[in-house]
């Protein structure tokens, strides 16, 4: 009788903590900014912002950022000098110095017609912990999601959220079922085979008998003749 309220209370606690965690998360938004290596201290400019709530694992969102001629020239110059292009992601409730950052070659951005492939890695609890940036392969289907055609004047971005896989546990259940099946098959084979001993093993007995007969016959011949 006492178990029910206890379990109920436990479920409430679990739900409460989950809700709390969720409530903490929905307060967060991720802003993405970019910067170039040539700057002495990276002064990044905001590109876009997403709310955590809108991020779905393995889904892609897009953004577009109109580049000023100066910005475009800067990226192209960085590309010519083989410099790097940086992306930063920051949660809105974190300090300015707390961010996650990644980079790629500026050449990659120019070569992919100013289309950025951004990957936001989130852990099992939906917390972003790493960001990646790189060019998008022309054959990538995600390009169809872009709101406009790639051009020099606009920086287009595809932001994909990647989650964490659950590691597999030892497949004890599958193995148990396999053993059961094998045992059942063995039993079925044993029960269906109700032949006599001779009919089951004649193929082994006959050669032995023949061998003994022939070898006995060969030795017995000369004896009889004598």
């Amino acid at each position: 009788m006492m178990e029910y309220p206890l379990k109920y209370a436990q479920i409430c606690m679990v739900l409460g903590s989950l809700f709390q965690a969720y409530a903490q998360d929905i307060a967060k938004a991720v802003s993405i900014s970019h910067c170039l290596e040539s700057e002495i201290k990276l002064q990044c400019e905001k590109l876009t912002e997403f709310s955590i709530q809108s991020l779905r694992i393995n889904q892609t969102q897009t953004f577009s950022h109109t580049l000023t001629p100066a910005e475009r020239n800067q990226i192209e110059r960085a590309s010519n000098k083989n410099e790097l292009y940086f992306i930063r992601a920051k949660l809105d409730n974190e300090r300015d110095s707390t961010y996650i950052q990644s980079f790629c070659k500026a050449t990659d951005i120019v070569d992919s017609s100013f289309v950025l492939g951004v990957i936001l890695n989130v852990d099992a609890f939906g917390r972003p912990y790493a960001v990646e940036v790189g060019p998008v392969d022309p054959a990538d289907r995600r390009l169809l999601l872009l709101p406009e055609e790639p051009s020099d004047g606009t920086l287009l971005g595809l932001v994909t959220v990647l989650g964490s896989q659950s590691a597999p546990t030892p497949d004890v259940e599958g193995y148990r079922k396999k053993l059961q099946r094998e045992q059942a098959e063995k039993k079925a084979a044993e029960s269906s085979d109700n032949r006599s001993f001779l009919s089951k093993y004649w193929m082994y007995i006959v050669p032995v008998v023949l061998f003994m007969l022939f070898s006995g016959g060969m030795q017995g011949g000369p004896q009889g003749g004598g």
């Binding site: 990644s102 980079f103 990957i119 852990d123 790493a130 990646e132 964490s164 896989q165 590691a167």
Partner: peptide, 14 residues
Amino acid sequence: ITGRVLISQTYRRA
């Protein structure tokens, strides 16, 4: 070198 995440696995109750 690049900080790209190549594997991410979570082990529950571990």
